[in-house]
Each structure stands twice: as structure tokens, then as C-alpha cells.
């Protein structure tokens, strides 16, 4: 049971969505966009949710797209992780999404919801960071398409009333060699101890991480160290780990030292696979 009362709206166009957000906001209802809703419902049940209105994005035509348009794969923000996995148009993204929660919940979680939620792991962002994806954002100020590497800084940096409508991935990236590894403490279905997505692009390795710091990230500085073949494998990995963009997590999933140990082992295996 969710004790909180709120209103529910399900617009069908981007314009209607922005209009209803503005109206509800002006009425002081603190509207919130709603994707798959798994996180919002869980928060609501625990009374950790403050909103007077939910705006469901799942019937907006632009947010339901999943297809190639010219040389870009366009994925609407309301596309579920299951749809991404079943169509398998971007195998690395399919694989990363298929390790989030369990299969039934993947039928509900949307790409936009995973990217914009409050849970820190957001593992679907990793392949999108590696592939220099573009994010199509709609909001009261109009529409804009921006590189994900500029708009995702620890979390999606959206203005008031803005929402992610689509992700666009250049076709050249979807078939790049890749390795995805999600290491958990014990169970298969749980949050990651460490989740790593890597992609081989133009002779170099790109790497993005979740579960390492308090936010998912791709670090160019770390990639430069990982790709420095003048050093030994151990040196490359040690130097890269020294450059994480935040403190390495120490929590119930694992201590900082244990995480470092796991990351080293995984990166060693991954680099060997990609450089074969």
C-alpha cells in the first residue's frame, strides 16, 4: 500500500507532457515524471516519496521508439530493459540491462527510469557513455540533443521540468567488441559489487564502471592509463585505479580493499580478452 495520495496523468505527446508539468508545478503539486515506476512505487510504499502528481511517460510516441534511423539506433526512454534485450540491437546495452534486478522487473524498468532514478548504480548508462551516445531531452525550455558525456555527471543533469525522451547511438559502436562483467557479493540478482563495461574502439579500450564509486562513470584519464602499453599490465591497472573520480565505495557489498582487489582481477581478464 502506498499511503501518499497523488494525481496521475498519462500524456501522449512531448508538448502535452511539458504543458501538464508546467500546470501542475504552478499549482504547487511537485510533479514527478514516471517511467517503469518500480523505484517510485517502492519509495512510495516506504513513505519516502513527496509528490502531488505523477506524469507517466510510457504512452508518448517519441519515448516508445526502438529502431534505426539512418545511421543511429534510437531508443525511447520508455523502452523497457526486456525490449532492449529481446531485440538485441545493441548487445552491450542488452547485456548490461539483463543484469539489473530480475527478469520480471526488467519487463517494467525503462531505460529512462534506470538512467534518471535515484539508485546509484544506473548500469545502463555505462554502454551509453562508452558509445558517446546523444541524449534527446524535452522540457519547458524546448528540446535539445546533447552528448551523454556532457549531461551525465554522476547523474543526469536535467533542468526543472526536463525529461529524457530518447537516446541515440551511432551504429558504428553497436558492433564494437565488448566485455561486460557484473560481480556481486553473493547472489546473482542484487546490486553490483563492481560492474564494468568495456568496448574496443579504434585500437583502444574504453571502460565505464558502476559500484566502484558512489556514481557510475567513464574516466578518460583511467582509459589513458589502461591503454598505455609501454607499461606492464599490473602497472596499467594500478595507475588506472588510482584515478577513480571519487572514493572507492566501502559498504555492506564489500570493503574498499576488496573492491580494489576485484577490480584488478576483472580488468586483467577483460584487457586480455580485448587485446587478444
Amino acid at each position: 500500500m502506498i499511503p501518499l495520495n497523488f494525481e496521475y496523468y498519462r500524456p501522449e505527446t512531448l508538448a502535452d507532457t511539458v504543458d501538464i508539468f508546467d500546470k501542475l508545478d504552478a499549482e504547487g503539486k511537485q510533479p514527478m515524471y514516471y517511467g517503469g515506476g518500480t523505484e517510485i512505487i517502492s519509495m512510495g510504499r516506504m513513505s519516502n516519496l513527496t509528490t502531488g502528481a505523477l506524469i507517466d511517460l510510457k504512452e508518448i510516441a517519441d519515448c516508445k521508439v526502438l529502431e534505426y534511423q539512418q545511421e543511429q539506433l534510437v531508443i525511447g526512454s520508455s523502452v523497457t530493459l526486456t525490449q532492449i534485450h529481446e531485440t538485441n540491437l545493441f548487445p552491450l546495452l542488452s547485456q548490461a540491462g539483463a543484469r539489473i534486478a530480475d527478469h520480471t522487473i526488467q519487463n517494467k524498468i525503462t531505460l529512462g527510469g534506470n538512467l534518471c532514478g535515484t539508485i546509484i548504480y544506473k548500469e545502463t548508462v555505462l554502454p551509453l557513455l562508452l558509445s558517446d551516445s546523444q541524449v534527446f531531452i524535452a522540457g519547458p525550455g524546448g528540446q535539445r540533443t546533447v552528448p551523454i558525456n556532457s549531461v551525465f555527471k554522476e547523474r543526469m543533469q536535467l533542468g526543472k521540468g526536463e525529461f529524457v525522451a530518447q537516446i541515440k547511438v551511432d551504429k558504428k559502436y553497436v558492433s564494437c567488441p565488448y566485455v561486460h562483467v557484473k560481480q556481486t557479493k553473493q547472489d546473482k540478482i542484487t546490486y553490483p559489487l563492481v560492474s564494468i563495461c568495456t568496448m574496443a574502439v579504434s585500437g583502444g579500450i574504453r571502460a565505464a564502471f558502476s559500484g566502484v564509486c558512489g556514481f557510475p562513470f567513464r574516466s578518460i584519464a583511467m582509459e589513458e592509463e589502461l591503454n598505455d602499453r609501454s607499461r606492464s599490465m599490473e602497472q596499467r591497472i594500478d595507475k588506472a585505479i588510482d584515478l577513480t573520480p571519487g572514493p572507492i565505495l566501502a559498504d555492506l557489498e564489500g570493503s574498499m580493499e576488496y573492491r580494489k582487489f576485484i577490480i584488478k582481477g576483472l580488468l586483467n581478464s577483460i584487457i586480455n580478452q580485448l587485446e587478444e
Partner: peptide, 23 residues
């Protein structure tokens, strides 16, 4: 009622959905 156990699973448009996590 938190999406973990699956006891509330129903089919929605043919797909299994945990009905505790759907409004």
C-alpha cells in the same frame, strides 16, 4: 510487496509483471 518474491506475478499484455510494482 517490494518486487522481490514474485508471488503477485500476473501477465500484462502477455508479459509477467509483479503487480505490487504496477499502479
Amino acid at each position: 510487496e517490494n518486487g522481490d518474491c514474485g508471488a503477485c506475478t500476473v501477465l500484462v499484455d502477455g508479459w509477467p509483471i509483479k503487480s505490487c510494482l504496477m499502479l
